[in-house]
Design a protein around this nucleic acid. Sequence first.
DNA 1: AAAAAATGTCACATATTTGAGAAATTAGTC
DNA 2: GACTAATTTCTCAAATATGTGACATTTTTT
Lengths: 184, 184
Amino acid sequence: MIDTQQKIVDSAILVFNDDLSAPLEKVADKAMVTRRTLHRYFKDRSDLIAACAKDMRKRCSKAMGDALNSSNDPLEQLEQMLYAGVDCGAKYSFFHKMHNREGHQHDHQNKDCAEYDAMYRHYQEIILDLQEKGKVSKQLTSEWIFMFFTGVVSATVKADSTGTVAKQSLKQFAWFSFSKGIGI
Amino acid sequence: MIDTQQKIVDSAILVFNDDLSAPLEKVADKAMVTRRTLHRYFKDRSDLIAACAKDMRKRCSKAMGDALNSSNDPLEQLEQMLYAGVDCGAKYSFFHKMHNREGHQHDHQNKDCAEYDAMYRHYQEIILDLQEKGKVSKQLTSEWIFMFFTGVVSATVKADSTGTVAKQSLKQFAWFSFSKGIGI
DNA sequence: AAAAAATGTCACATATTTGAGAAATTAGTC
DNA sequence: GACTAATTTCTCAAATATGTGACATTTTTT
């Protein structure tokens, strides 16, 4: 009996990323448990979503943190951040989606929001740094570059899941398009 | 009384693009009509979604067709296609999403699928042509470039709706990042 | 202003989703 | 093999979402 709770959360992130109001049965099916089991771990829908949020936050922060620690060169850091986003897959996409939905109440007291902001700040420092050094186009704003970053991650995750692009080329393509796309 | 039916379809595309299983009440609210009125125009949920599909197909095909007709230069055509995608907004995003969902039964007899395929073929011809001429990187596959294209469109549409990026810069940024990102 | 058309209100029947209890079953452990 | 914990199965009640009829109200047309 491997961690059922985690399996449910993982499935929920996949399902909800695709269809936020999907019935819980879909989540249970994907996790290969009964709805009854799901309810033993999670009181209700919002409880499950909160668990997803927490999981995504932890996973994404860790991956981004590791990416930042992997090097002192901001360019190298940026590349690793992109790969981290891709590796997080739906966890990254859904995390971003939830924090940019209309109707989302941003609250810095909230741990999820705080970590999201922290991630964004780190990213922004790197971009500004690279722009200073003339490595990233100064025509572009960091806001656009962030949107673009997320767009590339989502495209890569989708390409992976549909299987239209060979897995071993994915990250290479993603970095090629992202780095050139911001003027590197 | 301006075209209520169209207003409902437009709202549905916005709502369903964000949350496919959202209750119809949300659609009605966004269209500023009652659920009862919505049901006068659309028999049920699937009828409404079919209407959305038809609308997206018409709108996207027209926009892409116009883009292709605007020039004979494939590079210029590609640029106009990107702008067309951005102008279609959620209509383009949702159209693409629906045809790439897991569980989507692709059927060339189906008009929506046929048009989607036609769009894809046109796009592919242009990419291959540009690759032949050495204007687009041959490292990248046309499948990746298509995913990337859609990713850039989605990012641009999202940037527009969140208002984080100035409207007049949007298309410029989008084309900069896309064109550089495929090696132009 | 009257007729026609469109929309809203309210009420109701159905269908689906949700959440939880109790007993049976399964899986892992000693 | 007996014991324990996790899961399934079956159940059911409550909540939510869906679709429709009857009639009032508003808007548009003539």
